[in-house]
């Protein structure tokens, strides 16, 4: 048998990114649902609390961040569900490519599909909350770092609950407590920016959490996938 050469790690990552992004374009619902949810939740608060500008400015950062967190939450459940049901997960686990790398690939796809669009749409929402422009810049920075960390946390939760029939309710119970530090630093940093305070502390923390997640979460996700796929 002519020994074909083994694909490199990068080839494996690119392969899984390419496949999942292709899948995402075939099912645009996965991209648009979190976005619609994010927009709708953000408009609920002014209706509930009233249109007074000074109130909106005060709650703006918090609302945008909570809406983003919840929008990410509803799309986390589907991260491995498709692969679990059609048997692709068996193939991923039994491939020579390390499973943490493949899990990282899926997490990156999840962020590209449901995290990044939130960051890009968030300025529109922020404008409805009369948020000044430089605060919007800080908000987008914290949101992009925060959504990456949420995807990483979500991948562990999704892998743990993929095989369970009422997994999505359980997933939010597992992920939300762990996501609180991200919410705290994200929302409060934007609020600090609104009162033009120093924001570097928050952004450094979110960046640090991102790096911690990037280095640890894939291994936890890989272990959880092996366990759930039994």
């Amino acid at each position: 048998m002519s020994a074909a050469n083994r694909p490199t790690l990068v080839a494996g990552l690119v392969a899984i990114l390419r496949r999942d992004l292709l899948l995402a374009f075939k099912r645009p619902g996965d991209v648009l649902n979190p976005l619609f949810f994010f927009a709708i939740v953000s408009t609920l608060f002014p209706l509930a609390i009233g249109p007074a500008p000074e109130q909106l400015v005060a709650i703006g950062p918090g609302v945008v961040w909570v809406a983003a967190l919840l929008a990410m939450l509803i799309s986390m459940n589907g991260m491995f569900l498709g692969d679990f049901e059609d048997g692709s997960l068996d193939q991923l686990i039994l491939s020579p490519q390390p499973l943490p790398l493949l899990a990282l690939g899926k997490t990156i796809t999840h962020w590209l599909v449901s995290g990044l669009p939130l960051v890009l749409v968030s300025p529109l929402i922020a404008v409805t909350y009369q948020m000044p422009f430089d605060t919007i810049g800080v908000m987008m920075a914290t949101l992009s770092l925060g959504t990456i960390s949420l995807s990483l946390l979500g991948s562990v939760g999704a892998a743990l609950t993929v095989g369970l029939n009422r997994g999505s309710a359980l997933l939010s119970l597992l992920v939300l407590p762990l996501a609180m530090p991200i919410l705290i630093f994200g929302a409060r940093t934007v609020a600090l920016a609104a009162s033009n305070d120093v924001v570097s502390a928050g952004i450094y923390f979110l960046a640090a959490y991102c790096v911690l997640g990037l280095s640890l979460a894939p291994f936890a996700t890989a272990a959880a996938l092996r366990i759930s796929n039994e």
Binding site: L23, D86, Q97
Partner: peptide, 30 residues
């Protein structure tokens, strides 16, 4: 591993699925 379940993505074409395999393991695309 050849299992009951397909192990491929039903929404994608045969070519896309097999090209994905090439990223996972040694495949004789020739």
């Amino acid at each position: 591993w050849f299992a009951h379940r397909l192990g491929f993505k039903a929404d994608l074409t045969l070519v896309d699925n097999l090209r994905f395999e090439a990223g996972l393991r040694r495949t004789r695309m020739d």
